[in-house]
Design a protein around this nucleic acid. Structure first.
Length: 910
RNA sequence: GGACCUUUAGCUCAGUUGGUUAGAGCGUUUCGUUGACAUCGAAAAGGUCACUGGUUCGAGUCCAGUAAGGUCCA
């Protein structure tokens, strides 16, 4: 067997095992009727994406779940893929074209889409390669892309079906228009941002009474040429007399009416509102109520058009705003400019202010809204943390129709054809149902020469909402059979960020309910049973990590410095369930250090004695010798089973950081700092050595199993180096994790019964050793190994000490520890196992020693007072549970005994 | 305006149903390379659990309110 080197070098190990796992097909998700299915569909990263810390956290958690499921004997599938990300990808390619001074229009639709595919072949999906570095055990043979032929068919079929079922309609409505990418956006893609801008007070002159004005406030003077009325509240006495009169529009001068509408806020500004139906949602509604014309003064790209008037036409909207203000000033219409803070909607992708714009779009009335609510409310789908279900339900309560069309070229082109020569502007709802005018199908019309296809594509989310089942072959029966749709759907767990709860999670639930397993119960149609929401990773200042801020470390750099396992362990250890995470690189370093600790403890085992057959639990257990068990042996196995149970609990409740912390504490403190140290005595005696090594083998084996989901590479390597697996087998694929009760039974069958009482004595021995060390340190002897201690104690306590004396002497750095009836004048410390004296009477500074003891006595007195007060309280004694009461009494007795001993020591010093 | 989250050691955070003297990592101080590991070991210092009230024999934990910071929705 290969020798374990002095330090763990992650790089080669990671490369070696990842290649080996892949070559052996360890990641393949297979239908196995004998085993329970466990499946996860990856949240498909954008095809343009590169790995961020958010991805690291998210995908590490998924890998943890998948690997744990494998160890539990489940048949696990982690399905990977990427999202075509309409706007993002189109923007990337357009930016590239711009370098050659070209636009997509220079190529035309077909050629441009070809270019995007070329880009994707060449540069897309880098992130999937990066996930491999992280150790992600995805079934790469199943990698999917939302624009794959099969997937596209699913998307278009869903469109056709939803249209047939009456959920889809075409309508001219106010949409969120992004002038940068020149497409409509859904409400979810608009981010409200507070903006410090200017509000303009503008006066409109009454046509019939020159010199009299009505004043309005607006943040958008450039849209004044689009004003078609001034509205006032019908109950506003200031304006009652003016309703029905007209005013002069101050830009692109024309007479417009003063109308009354209850939507006007009397308290805002002067109480009068300019009505610009083309550029504001409320105005549009007011305009419709009053049958006012619509004057659109903006082009699709956000520049002003001819309707804005000669002076403004051609200007960008922001330049136009300035110019409009100047023109108003010149004409005397501008009363004042005031600083003004308001919320402005920005395009999520392009980060420019959106324009409300009246356009024809395709809309979806969501299906299965009530069922989607019930699924989460009734816990068929469980959210972790649970509180996000409230956010989810609130959104569904107030759900609005979804604008699913996008004016892009990269995406799923909507499968709608219009009869040639038809005026799309005049189509009404009934025309959509007229096959002479509109053709809607997957295959397209039989006589394509007579038809023109819809230019728009679908919103990217209108493809990704099918992800959990379209990736399993839906709706193609043959593909569904081949990919195990019936076996793996519903998927087990979705791991994602709460920021896409509306974009994606809610929509997937509705899609799953609508399209999968028709007619069957809800539990079979939901797309996943659990949803785990990760926190957001922030920098030290608490800001979101983002490319533009440059505050996000490159995960690949971190992998190079700390290893993939170190990164995984570190990130999980700082990611409590549902809380945002403040990134600290030193925690990643801590992950690396832990790996090194694990490595070296294994190395110690290898150096301590011949490796015996470790290939199964049975053969290791067979080497245990119950007769040779001492308190430490009982204690370490007791702790091992406790941590096994704790990790079980953590997985059941999705508490990964708690699991990692429990394992860290167990392995570092209980095993390395104590058991390995006491082993050094036990290993010197041929009598205790074999049993001690067998226990180490058991502990290491179980620790590797428990840790594997978190740190897969190093555990696989050590599993192999310590001989736990048969040749050609893998921890990740072939090993099975045993629960604590299985262990208790296994060692019980060997005649070893865990003795809790003995195990408990170890805690006192630890305190004893610790206090002995502290006593040395107090007297500047910490580094000496030749100190003599005396102890005065009871027979019972001495029995415990005597049983471990060799180990204690070694651990405390003593030459000997002698029991005495009484000791005078030596520095002492009161431990749970008796009073411990340092044999240095001659050199003791009695004064300092008295100060030290007095301080301790003082603190103890406070505790005693507190305990006495509690026990003296009649209410406490009569109402507290017996166990608590008994505990308090025992505590008081111990505290008093210690006080008496300290008092005696103090007196002895004079 | 509505909803939710956070506030515990110098820093970042744990703290499960209320019950001994509130924990961890990092940082700090002192000591240490005795053959697993200096990516380490030992010892130590460090907290009015944001504030105010309430419930309770007992509150970091439950309830109400206040303040500060943050997120989402409108």
């Amino acid at each position: 067997m290969a020798e374990i080197t002095k330090s763990y070098e992650s790089r080669d190990v990671e490369k070696k095992w990842y290649a080996a796992w892949q070559a052996a097909g360890c990641f393949a998700g297979k239908v196995d009727p004998q085993a329970q299915a466990y499946s996860i569909a990856i949240p498909p990263p954008n095809v343009t994406g590169v790995l961020t810390m958010g991805h690291v956290l998210n995908n590490t958690i998924q890998d943890i779940l998948i690997r744990r499921a494998r160890l539990e004997g489940k048949s696990a599938l982690w399905l990977p893929g990427t999202d075509h990300a309409g706007i993002a990808t189109q923007t990337v390619v357009e930016r590239q074209l711009r370098k050659d001074k070209k636009t997509r229009h220079d190529f035309g639709r077909e050629k441009f889409v070809e270019k995007v595919w070329e880009w994707r072949e060449e540069k897309g999906g880098i992130i999937l390669e990066q996930l491999r570095r992280l150790g992600a055990s995805c079934d790469w043979n199943r990698t999917q892309f939302t624009m794959d032929e099969h997937y596209s068919k699913a998307v278009l079929e869903v469109f056709v079906k939803l249209f047939e079922r009456g959920h889809i309609y075409r309508g001219k409505r106010m949409v969120n228009w992004c002038p940068a990418s020149q497409t409509a956006l859904s409400d979810e893609e608009v981010i409200m941002k507070p903006v410090n801008g200017t509000i303009y007070r503008v006066r409109y002159e009454l046509t019939e009474r020159p010199g009299e004005f009505i004043e309005v406030k607006t943040t958008r003077p450039e849209t004044i040429p689009g004003d078609v009325a001034i509205a006032v509240h019908p109950d506003d006495p200031r304006y009652t007399a003016l309703i029905g009169k007209t005013v002069w529009r101050p830009l692109n001068r024309a007479a417009i009416p003063i109308i009354a509408d209850a939507a006007v806020d009397k308290e805002f500004g002067s109480g009068a509102l300019k009505i610009t139906p083309a550029h504001d949602k409320v105005d549009c509604e007011v305009g419709a109520r009053h049958k006012l014309p619509i004057i659109d003064v903006l082009n699709a790209d956000g520049t002003l058009n001819a309707f804005a008037g000669a002076e403004l036409a051609g200007l960008d909207r922001f330049a136009g705003r300035k110019k409009a203000a100047e023109l108003l000033k010149e004409s005397g219409a501008l009363v004042a400019e005031e600083a003004y803070a308001n919320n402005v909607g920005y395009s999520e992708r392009a980060d420019v202010p959106i324009e409300p714009r009246l356009t024809w779009q395709w809309w979806l009335r969501y299906p299965r809204v009530e069922e989607a609510k019930a699924a989460v409310r009734d816990r068929h789908i469980k959210f972790y943390p649970e509180r996000w279900s409230k956010v989810y339900l609130h959104w569904l309560e107030n759900i609005q129709d979804w604008c699913i069309s996008r004016q892009l070229w990269w995406g799923h082109r909507i499968p709608v054809w219009y009869r040639k020569g038809l005026d799309k502007e005049t189509l009404v709802e009934t025309d959509l149902r007229d096959p002479q005018k509109i053709h809607i199908s997957l295959a397209g019309p039989a006589d394509p020469e007579n038809w023109v296809q819809e230019d728009d594509v679908l919103d990217t989310w209108a493809s990704s909402w099918l992800w959990p089942f379209a990736t399993l072959g839906w709706p193609d029966a043959e593909k569904m059979r081949a990919s195990g749709y019936d076996y793996f759907y519903p998927t087990s767990t979705l791991v994602t960020g709460p920021d896409i709860i509306f974009f994606w999670v809610a929509r997937m639930i509705m899609a799953g309910l609508e399209f999968t397993h028709p007619g069957e119960p809800l539990e079979k149609r939901i797309p996943f049973k659990n949803v785990y929401f990760t926190g957001i990773i922030r920098d030290q200042q608490g800001r979101k990590m983002s490319k533009s801020l440059g505050n996000s470390p490159d995960p690949l750099d971190l992998i190079n410095s700390y290893g993939a396992d170190g990164l995984r362990f570190g990130i999980i250890s700082i990611a409590p369930q549902g809380q945002d995470i403040r990134f600290q690189e030193d925690r990643i370093e801590g992950g690396k250090n832990f790996c090194n600790k694990l490595w070296n403890a294994s190395r110690f085992r290898q150096m301590s004695g011949e490796m015996a057959d470790n290939s199964s639990i049975a053969v290791i257990v067979a080497r245990l010798d119950g007769a040779k068990f001492d308190a430490d042996d009982h204690a370490i196995l007791d702790r091992l089973f406790a941590v096994t149970r704790e990790v079980d609990r953590c997985f059941a409740e999705f508490e990964f950081s708690a699991a990692v912390q429990a394992l860290y504490g167990f392995f570092w403190n209980d095993f390395c700092d104590w058991y390995v140290e006491v082993s050094k005595s036990k290993l010197q005696s041929p009598d205790t050595k074999p049993n001690c090594l067998a226990i180490q083998d058991l502990v290491l084996r179980q620790t590797l199993l428990l840790l594997h989901p978190f740190i897969p590479f190093i555990t696989e390597e050590l599993w192999s180096l310590l001989g736990y697996g048969a040749a050609g087998s893998f921890l990740m694929r072939d090993a099975r994790i045993e629960d604590a009760s299985h262990w208790v039974m296994a060692i019980g069958a060997r005649g070893v019964l865990l003795d809790q009482t003995q195990a408990a004595t170890v805690e006192n021995v630890k305190v004893f050793v610790s206090q002995a060390r502290a006593l040395k340190a107090d007297h500047q002897l910490a580094s000496r190994r030749d100190v003599r201690f005396f102890v005065t104690t009871t027979d019972a306590a001495w029995t415990i000490l005597e049983a471990s004396l060799g180990k204690i002497i070694r651990m405390a750095g003593a030459v000997e520890i002698l029991r005495k009836v009484s000791v005078d004048g030596a520095p002492a410390v009161v431990t749970p196992l008796g009073t411990l004296y340092l044999d240095l009477a001659s050199t003791v500074d009695a004064g300092a020693e008295k100060v030290r003891l007095a301080k301790e006595l003082e603190q103890l007195a406070k505790h005693i007072a507190g305990t006495e007060a509690r026990l003296g309280n009649e209410a406490f004694v009569s109402k507290a549970p017996a166990a608590v009461l008994e505990g308090a009494r025992k505590q008081l007795a111990d505290q008093r005994a210690k006080r008496d001993e300290l008092t005696r020591l103090l007196k002895a010093l004079g």
